[in-house]
Design a protein around this nucleic acid. Structure first.
Lengths: 230, 230
DNA sequence: GATGTTAGTGTAAAAAATACACCCTATATT
DNA sequence: AATATAGGGTGTATTTTTTACACTAACATC
């Protein structure tokens, strides 16, 4: 594709799909590539896995180098190994995903020349992407939809303190579907994994909403075991 | 570990976790290795992925070479890349799993010298296994437990025609838990994905049970969409 | 025809899910 | 000060789903 392609450093890489939620919208973290192939394109943070590091370590390192984000718990999504996914030959990539609270994470500083900038993009208006990254993002979304059905990963995407409306909007964004306010609240509160705080919203031009916090201990009790059949 | 280790042909492999169900018991397909490392040990069918084949193709080829099994739909489970999982250095392995009807699959013929024999082993008395294969099997089981909660993959593990009791025993084996017969039947029949056949068991020393068949079309309608929230 | 073994069935009670509409309250506007 | 605006917050009746629970039916064998 381009003259001065770098040598392949290994035949497998790790990619990160980082989701964030802000203003009722799901976003994904993309980087602008500063290196061939796909120089100048947007893509997922991702790079070669070194020979002496585990994949888990690699993906953490790569995310940090590309975006400055640290200590993000990522889960493995899928491994992609199509023959044409990389223009320089078959490169297998292990994709990981994570969900983040988007408060205060607006300015991201890449720590490598391979990346020009890292920017949150709304999921419903993504640019063209390098490699098969569109495909990887698709797969992540469908995994998240399933997962949120039986485990409240949603909390990862919200600030520490959140209102029930924010929580509901998040579910609505992930499922792309309106939910009933009263039923949603009833169900959520019945799980008993939310802790009501004394605090309220401030400076809003309408009745202020109560803040809630997610109770990790209770969560483990409720969702630690499998779904029930009988 | 051993003198004449073969050269590493690539740094990643694909492993197969094949589950079968027979006589109320879950089984997994293991091979006896005829090659270092772990010559003489039991392990999962697995081998190197060639440079010009997709992982999906590789895993299908490997399963065939190791066991003679063909046209088995396998799903990707997880990619394992710990530094110590292979004695010759870091080898990344992509594990796939599948579930099979165990009728008539008793005699398996390996087609490669790497494998001495392929044998079904009951899940609850596995021998010591090569590499991290115990770990891989563990992870497969927990995936199956989750998956069966929201999609009836159980049918893959039963013969074409099965009785409701067989179906129930399968669920009980996967969940390691007794279920109520009446409730189980009611629920299963209510899904409307079973077709009652005219046929009955024959030659059994007690009241013969009706056979059922799994209706794929109806299944897609019922389980095609996600779990519901509101 | 007695025995043993699994197949097959119903109902009442409890729990969960759903559909649905109005008043509350903090600010902004006039 | 009165009013408008916009989201916050709540209850109930109905339906659906889940659960707990025990006996008779059918068939082969002795």
């Amino acid at each position: 594709m381009q003259a001065n392609l770098p040598h392949l450093q290994s035949i497998f890489t790790a990619d990160c799909v980082i989701f964030g939620f802000e203003e009722g919208e799901l976003k994904v973290l993309l980087i602008e590539r500063n290196e061939y192939p796909f120089k100048g394109w947007w893509g997922l943070p991702g790079f070669f896995v070194e020979h002496n590091e585990t994949i888990d370590d690699a993906v953490e390192r790569i995310l940090y180098e590309h975006t400055g984000l640290r200590d993000i718990y990522m889960e493995q999504l899928y491994t992609f190994g199509d023959l044409q996914r990389h223009p320089q030959g078959r490169v297998i990539t292990v994709a990981y995903y994570a969900m983040l609270r988007l408060e205060g994470l607006t300015s991201l500083k890449p720590g490598t020349d391979y990346v020009r900038q890292a920017v949150w993009h709304p999921l419903n208006k993504l640019p063209d992407l390098a490699f098969d990254h569109h495909n990887i993002i698709e797969k992540s979304i469908s995994k998240i939809r399933k997962k949120i059905s039986y485990s409240p990963i949603a909390f990862e995407l919200l600030p520490e303190k959140f209102t029930l409306t924010q929580l509901q909007q998040l579910y609505e964004a992930i499922w792309d579907k309106k939910l009933d306010k009263r039923n949603f609240r009833k169900k959520m509160l019945n799980y008993n994994i939310l802790k009501e705080l004394d605090e309220k919203q401030r400076g809003v031009a309408f009745r202020a909403a109560k803040f809630y916090r997610f109770d990790k201990r209770k969560y483990a009790k409720v969702f630690g075991n499998e779904l029930n059949f009988s």
